[in-house]
Each structure stands twice: as C-alpha cells, then as structure tokens.
C-alpha cells in the first residue's frame, strides 16, 4: 500500500482463465458423448505436460513458479490443444504438441502475456505439419462405425498403440467431415450427394455439430460473464457465414452451405475460445473486428482452397502476426479529441 488506488476489484488472471476452462465443459461433454472418454485422457495428459513444462521453463527463466502455475493459463493452452487434435491420438503426440506450445511458443517469447502467437495453435500447427497422418485419423463418432472401442481399448491404443484383435486403425477412425468434403469434391462429387452421406448428420456432421453447439453455449456464457467482448466471435462468424453463403448461392454444387462451415471443424471453438485469447488478439474494438474478419476469411479460404482439412489454426496464426499493426492503426479517439485525432 504505497500508492493509489488503495482498493481493487476482486478479479484475477487465474479466475478469468478458470471461467474460460469452465465454459469449455459443455463442448467437452458432447465430445465424450460422441467419441468416448479418450478425449479426457488426452486432456489429462496435456494438462500434466503443460504444468510440468511451465514449471520447468519458469525455473529455467528464474521466475517464481507458484504464482504463474496458479494462473491457469497453461491449463487452458493444454485443453485447447487437446480439443484440437484427434481424440484417439498416441500419448506422445499430445505430449510433444503441448511441450512445444508451452516452451517454444510461450516461454521463449517471455511467458504469460508476451507470446505473439496462440500457443495451442502453434502446437497444433507443429503437429499437423510433422505428423499429418496421426492428425487426420479421427475416431468414428459413436453409432456410425461397425466397431465401437471401449475405454480400455482406447487407453491401450493411446499408451501402447495396440488395438484389440486384428482391428485396423482405419476401421475405427475416419476423416473429419471437412476433410471428407474436400476429398469428395476433388473426386467430382456433388455437394448434395456428399452432404447426404451419413457422416454429415443433420447439417454439419455427426458429433461435430453437437460439439460445436456445446462450444457455442460456452462462448455465450463467456460473453454474458463479460470475459470476452462480442466483437471477435460475431465478426468471425459473420464473415465466415457471408463468404461461404455468397459462394454457396453462386454454386451450391461446389460450395457447402454456411451453417456447415459454422458447425464443423473448429469454427465455434475458434470463434469463442481461440481467437479471443486476449494476449494474441488486438485490444481495440475496431481492431478486433478487423482481426476476426481476416481470420474468418482466411479460415474459409484455407478450408476450400488450401491443403489442410481445417483452416482455423493457420488463420489464427496468420492474423496473430498482424495484431501490432492492427492495434496501431485502430487507436480509438481519446476523450475530447474526437475531431482532431
């Protein structure tokens, strides 16, 4: 107590992060419902790795460990990364991705608050570039495939890479709806017939549409708790909707409807949880809109024309680079200086 203000509002970084973690729960519940509990194992693995890496890096950087471990930011990175990679991934994939995210993309840039790129997305990008085949094998949602793996079978695969009997990995996994769409379109499939395939569920994919819905619920919670502002999710989703909708109107046989883009892949997770990471997004309202519009456009372009199954991660990273520029360009007018500056 040396200088004013002598009173503070009870709020903390760790509480904010905790709220975000809490908001992820509906999506996770849907995830478990459709893909089995394997995701929980991934999340646990990622969490432990993240905390251990965080502690190690803090020690190496000669920083106090306890206050930073308690800020929950490492946990959030771990959860987001675990939710972005296939649920049935070998343990080392999760561990390598998380370690990279925390050590290289967070601590080498100065730790909490100083990283220019979203750590979880950096981890994801490294994994999809380094281990593309592991990253494209998604568990077949419950009820779609012939074989359903039990929890012990899933654990066995995660830790030992062994599947029961002579089941092949391909028999229990499949490409994501986004990936399938791209392949089918490549083989000159018609949008209508493709979307009638069982994997597409009601409109965007069995499982993925419900998981996305869960993230949407969580995102709304964050908005009403004023943890995030509306600018980024709204601008992102509207851009994605507008671009995909326009092209869908032009050529419905080649371009998927906008709702498909909203509810498949990581669109909802990205809109509410990844792009809204305060550290790596702009600080001005106008800047946030520009940032999210850019991310929406890039996501769409990468999804439709790019080589990767989903575009959210790369769109996020590309827009992360431009944050300082966007911030500098979108400084709002100061009190009493509206006409002058």
């Amino acid at each position: 107590m040396a200088f004013s203000p002598f009173i503070t509002k009870p709020s903390s970084v760790s509480e904010i992060m905790l709220q975000v973690l809490f908001a992820l729960i509906p999506g996770i519940l849907f995830y478990v419902w459709f893909y089995g509990p394997a995701i929980l194992v991934s999340m646990l693995l990622a969490s432990l790795t993240a905390l251990a890496t965080e502690a190690l890096m803090l020690k190496l950087r000669n920083r106090p460990v306890a206050p930073f471990l308690k800020d929950n930011s490492a946990l959030l990175t771990a959860w987001l990364l675990a939710l972005s990679i296939p649920p049935l991934a070998p343990w080392w994939l999760v561990v390598v991705g998380t370690m990279f995210a925390i050590s290289i993309s967070k601590h080498l840039y100065g730790g909490l608050g100083n990283n220019p790129f979203n750590p979880a997305m950096v981890g994801y990008a490294v994994l999809i570039i380094s281990f593309p085949s592991y990253m494209t094998h998604w568990l077949t949602p419950d009820g779609l495939g012939d074989i359903t793996l039990g929890f012990s079978d899933q654990l066995n695969y995660i830790f030992h890479g062994i599947l029961p009997g002579d089941i092949k990995l391909d028999a229990v996994t499949m490409a994501t709806p986004l990936d399938t769409l791209k392949t089918q379109l490549h083989m000159n499939g018609q949008m209508k017939t493709i979307l009638d395939m069982p994997i597409y569920g009601h409109f965007a994919g069995v499982g993925s549409e419900w998981v996305s819905f869960g993230f949407l619920l969580g995102g709304l919670y964050l908005f009403f708790r004023r943890i995030i502002s509306w600018h980024i999710p709204v601008a992102f989703l509207v851009t994605l909707f507008a671009v995909s909708g326009a092209l869908h109107l032009v050529d419905p046989s080649r371009y998927a409807p906008p709702l498909f883009h909203w509810f498949s892949g990581a669109a909802m997770l990205g809109a509410f949880f990844i792009l809204t990471d305060p550290v790596t997004s702009p600080t001005t309202p106008k800047g946030r809109m520009i940032f999210a519009c850019g991310a929406g456009l890039l996501t769409f372009l990468i999804r439709v024309y790019g080589g990767f199954p989903d575009g959210v991660a790369f769109a996020t990273l590309l827009m992360n680079i431009s944050v300082p520029l966007i911030d500098a360009w979108t400084q709002p007018a100061v009190f009493g200086r509206k006409d002058r500056s």
Binding site: M1, V13, I16, P67, F68, G110, G111, G113, N114, P278
Partner: peptide, 12 residues
C-alpha cells in the same frame, strides 16, 4: 496489502 503482480494479458 497489494496482491502479486502478474504480467499484462491485454484483457483490456
């Protein structure tokens, strides 16, 4: 007394 100071997370 003042609480632990953490880095700015640009939460605005």
């Amino acid at each position: 007394p003042p609480k632990t100071v953490l880095p700015c997370i640009r939460c605005t």
